[in-house]
Design a protein around this nucleic acid. Structure first.
Lengths: 205, 205
DNA sequence: ACAGCCATGTAACTTGTTACATGATTTT
DNA sequence: AAAATCATGTAACAAGTTACATGGCTGT
């Protein structure tokens, strides 16, 4: 839900035609998130379907300009005001993967953690390099913001992986790795509730 | 791509029926990622379509057991060995959002950053609380791993947001917030390449 | 009897994404 | 003329997610 909303926010600045939206998106994200052109047109049609934009007539160059509607502007305001909710769609694949790997027999978990750590470190160094070749001007600010985000995320990832490795080393015998649960669910009501913990993420809208 | 792979990895431990897969997934993620039951069956059908699992006969209880295929096992091995690639699908919505917001006129960007920071801090405290009520046993390890991931991510988020706020404060006049680009793309070849930077993320498979 | 879980499934939908077709225009 | 870009679109698909239907079983 970020391409859709981003395009809408750009259209809130004034009418654009499709191809123009791509370069605006590129410019505003410092070219860190290349966007397939086709997706622009898909997204515009979906936004039109939802009555958030309106298709204008083509000008003398054949450019088809799209206009935001009042509902669209309201949606942009709502998007900007509301915090991004972590994370209904897009479950963190890495967290789930490692959590599952930890429950698998064999040394798989430690290996996966190590492999991921190597990869994260490599990425971290690349990002630091990108971050150094600063540049200036408005485009550079957008780019720096996104690179910072990736830097912080990569650092956090390494820190987390190290913590997981510690936990694995501390565990006597990957206690969870007992294959499938000994007591599988049976039909009928369970003696005790399975769900002892509350979910940590908000349910989707 | 984490539900699909996770279910496959669980099936690699031995045949399961659908409902059982849900409780296994819950158990192995410390109940931090509640899963709609229907998704299990969808995913199983898609895995069957891709020849990664095989549907077995129902037992005396009517339980339909699913078996992993050789291709499925190979896929699990591949998944565990390969690092998670950041981030082809699931562009980081927050990073894109803030990057775009920074390019919008008005105080929107600073407001959005502040709002998000508040939300992140709140989440951070909740997570610390969850982390303290430790518990023990194998389930607790899985849960701790996932909570750690969210903790590290939330901390990184706050750190990043502060850095963005600094940048915004340092910028004389949100220099990027000039509405749409003055020189819009024209037909034909551009004088200079638009894409001065290389994309930072690997293109999708 | 009733609530509530166990269990399987179907249909629909969302966003993201890519591959491809098509043609105009401009630079080399 | 060829290459590259500008520009608009279409068709298909992936994965995630939810809502709903259906029935069996069990504890109160």
């Amino acid at each position: 839900m970020s391409v859709r909303q981003s395009l809408l926010a750009i259209l809130d600045q004034g009418p654009c035609y499709g191809y123009q939206l791509r370069s605006e998106f590129d410019r505003r994200t410092g070219s860190t998130r290349p966007l397939n052109v086709g997706q622009i047109y898909n997204t515009l049609e979906r936004l039109e379907r939802d009555a958030l934009v309106r298709r204008g007539d083509a000008d003398e160059h054949g450019h088809v300009y799209w206009h935001i509607t009042d509902a669209g502007s309201a949606e942009v305001a709502r998007w900007l005001a509301a915090p991004v909710v972590r994370t209904t769609a897009a479950r963190d694949e890495l967290a789930v993967k490692i959590a599952v790997a930890v429950t698998l027999p064999g040394a798989d978990a430690a290996t996966a953690v190590a492999a991921q750590r190597e990869d994260s470190l490599r990425r971290l160094h690349e990002l630091r390099r990108s971050s150094d070749e600063a540049g200036d001007g408005p485009e550079a600010l957008a780019r720096a913001v996104v690179i910072d985000a990736m830097l912080c995320a990569a650092e956090a990832e390494v820190r987390w992986l190290d913590r997981v490795a510690e936990r694995l080393a501390a565990e006597p015998q990957h206690a969870l790795a007992l294959g499938l649960a000994a007591d599988r669910p049976k039909r009928g009501r369970p003696a005790r509730a399975l769900q002892t913990h509350s979910p940590l993420i908000a349910p989707g809208k």
